[in-house]
Nucleic acid binder design. Structure first.
Length: 642
DNA sequence: TGAGGCAGCCAC
DNA sequence: AAACGTGGCTGCCTCA
């Protein structure tokens, strides 16, 4: 037996790395004793990287531990050790993990006989407890919900930073923090003792954070709720979604050409590197342009808004006709967008796809400080939605069609439900257009379309905690006009205005914390109590969405789900089933919040995600191979999409 | 040369 | 009095 130790609270905790037959027998006795005692055991893996579904991903070690000992199985040394790890996972009745979806998915894919379905019901996640206790990231003033920060706070401030310690070790062997995990020697003593340290810390952390959640009076039913939501998201992540490799490769090449072409154009004006904001601003100023905007750091700002103004185009890049367009500004806009689309989306899809051309975006089921979900690798919550070309790269399974079901204007509904504003509630229950009502109230019954648009911007501004100044900037109104619009909005919905005021006062009284209707604890910055209303709306909308996802799961529809996107479910089903499945998902998501109905809009597209973003049936049919291959479906599409 | 801050841009 | 929220990610640039 190789034995190392890991220091916690001044004690050296043994870390055992079994080598010989009798060592493995000792490990088995440890597991059986824990199983007989019904004791929860912490589990963790060290892997070659984070891309669980890439071709060369491997689990290197599997660790099991309790507060006073850890065992590290070097599973990459052979299938016997893999099987021993699997056996232990099957035998143990209760597990704990930090950020369990990563280890559960890695084990599901790479350990024999281990499935998500069997692991999830017996696993508690320290991360979920940490997020419920304090949802802020470290840079937002939280303690940090990673193992290192959380252990330092709850277990032992002087416990080694295992990741940082290993980075030094990686450098010694000529690797970086990204590549070291793959290349460090499997018998490296520091690597092994820190691997053991992680499960010792996790097992010590769990009771502390459980106590903390209880002490803070956080709704205890959120604990099983979040574990279930996370589990469903892991099922979705495991399935992944198909990309059209041929199309995506072509898209990448076209975007590359486009980016280079416009960069070449920019070079004519002296900009060698379009990504250098310094060069861009210098060149534009040199052309005689006036730029008043400054970045937070004081530099001349050359972001999209500035460039669009100089290029004389609106938000949709349509010409305005108010001045002579600056050709450099337009070239930079075009080159940067093509480059962004290629690197962040097209190439990211090609890079992360597995051997079956499926991507498995990582779903952070409980991520933002409001509990909203995040998606990364690739970032599928933020693919361009104004144009269809990027989303076209994602395709339904063979013979399937894409489905999208989203909540209909969920945030205004949540605003009405939380504030109890009678006029807003009545309008929603009648099915009236809220912005028409606002515009009529503010500008009179003969309001013009532009005034309805202002009403819409004000609504969003209020939801985000914004003020007249930002509304003026967005609408082109003067400050007094914007102020008048905000006053009019508040007069239209007086109870809402009062609710926002009293909520902020309450948040300040409660030490900049807020309890949402679901019993979740939110924490706000000391200079940003104004953000509390937005926080409450956003968080409540997320919890509604998560509840909808659980109902989808309860009705056996998870197999169809491809991705959650804030208030929208992306799914697929066979051509015949798609309309029914879309309707069933929509029904599962439908619910009421304090008497306000939260309805859904099911939509069925073609073979690609992009088909849901093509403006007309003809464009869709022309551009989507599924329709080209199924001429009869073109009629369906025309009928459905009008 | 790697790490991390800043700027920018994509989404809801 | 006023305060636009939540993320992921790439590339430049500076610092050690």
């Amino acid at each position: 037996m190789i034995e190392y130790s890991f220091p916690v609270l001044g004690q050296q905790i043994p870390v055992r790395v079994p080598q010989a037959v009798e060592d493995f027998q000792a490990f088995q006795r440890y597991i059986i004793d824990r199983a007989n005692a019904g004791e929860r055991v912490a589990y963790d893996t060290e892997t070659t990287g984070l891309a669980t579904y890439s071709r060369d991903f491997r689990i290197r070690t599997a660790q099991f531990g309790t507060p006073n000992q850890a065992w590290v199985l070097q599973v990459e040394k052979g299938s016997d050790l893999q099987r021993l790890s699997s056996w232990a996972l099957r035998t143990l009745p209760a597990l704990s993990m930090q950020n369990r979806n990563f280890d559960m998915l890695a084990s599901d894919r790479h350990l024999p006989g281990i499935t998500l379905e069997k692991l999830a019901p017996k696993t508690l996640d320290t991360y979920i407890h940490l997020h419920l206790s304090d949802p802020r990231r470290r840079d937002q003033g939280g303690i940090g919900n990673g193992l290192k920060d959380a252990s330092a706070h709850y277990v032992d401030p002087s416990a080694p930073d295992t990741a940082a310690g290993l980075y030094d070790e990686f450098h010694k062997i000529g690797h970086t923090k990204d590549t070291g995990w793959r290349h460090i020697d499997i018998d490296n003593p520091l690597y092994l003792s820190y691997a053991g340290g992680d499960v010792i810390l996790t097992s010590r952390l769990l009771p502390k954070v459980q106590a903390r959640v209880a002490e803070l009076g956080i709704n205890p039913s959120l604990i099983p709720f979040e574990h279930e939501v996370g589990y469903v998201c892991a099922l979705i992540e495991r399935r992944g979604m198909r990309i059209d490799r041929e199309y995506t490769t072509r898209l990448s090449a076209e975007l590359s050409d486009e980016s280079a072409r416009w960069a070449e154009e920019a070079r004519k004006y002296g900009v060698e590197n379009i990504n250098s904001t310094r060069q861009v601003s210098a060149a534009l100023l040199g052309m005689g342009e006036e730029i008043k905007e400054r970045t937070a750091g004081g530099a001349v700002q050359v972001d999209g808004n500035v460039l669009k103004r100089l290029a004389d185009v609106d938000r949709q890049w349509d010409p305005i006709g108010s001045r002579t367009p600056n050709p450099l500004a337009m070239a930079i806009l075009r080159s940067k967008r093509a480059s962004k689309w290629r690197t962040s989306y097209a190439d990211a899809m090609l890079r992360t796809a597995d051997e079956n051309d499926r991507v498995h975006p990582k779903i952070g089921a409980l991520a933002a400080r409001t509990a909203r979900m995040s998606i990364s690798d690739p970032p599928f919550q933020q693919l361009p939605s104004g144009k269809w070309e990027v989303r076209r790269a994602v395709i339904a399974d063979e013979g399937h069609r894409m489905i999208s079901v989203d909540y209909s204007s969920v945030e205004p509904r949540v605003m009405a439900a939380l504030s109890g504003d009678e006029r807003m509630t009545a309008a929603i229950l009648r099915g009236d257009d809220l912005h028409n009502l606002t515009a009529a109230s503010v500008y009179g019954p003969d309001f013009v379309p532009a005034q309805r648009k202002v009403a819409k911007v004000v609504q969003l501004g209020v939801a985000y905690g914004g003020g007249a100044k930002t509304i003026a900037a967005q609408t082109g109104l003067t400050l007094p006009e914007a102020q008048a619009a905000v006053r009019g909005y508040k007069r239209t919905y007086p109870r809402l205005a009062r609710y926002i005021r009293s909520l902020q006062a309450q948040v300040i009284r409660d030490g900049y914390t807020l309890r949402t209707p679901s019993g979740r604890r939110l924490v706000f910055d000391r200079d940003a109590a104004y953000a509390s209303f937005n926080g409450e709306i956003q968080s409540t909308a997320r919890d509604i969405f998560a509840q909808g996802l659980l109902e989808i799961h309860a009705r056996g529809l998870t197999q169809h789900v491809l991705l959650p996107v804030h208030d929208e479910i992306i799914a697929d089903a066979t051509d015949n089933e798609a309309p029914d499945i879309a309707r069933e998902i929509g029904e599962a998501m439908t619910m009421t919040l304090r008497g306000i109905p939260l309805g859904t809009d099911p939509d069925v597209g073609g073979a690609s995600w992009g088909s849901l973003y093509m403006k007309t049936a003809n464009t869709m049919i022309d551009n989507d191979p599924w329709y080209r291959a199924n001429p009869e479906a073109a009629h369906i599409a025309e009928r459905e999409r009008g």
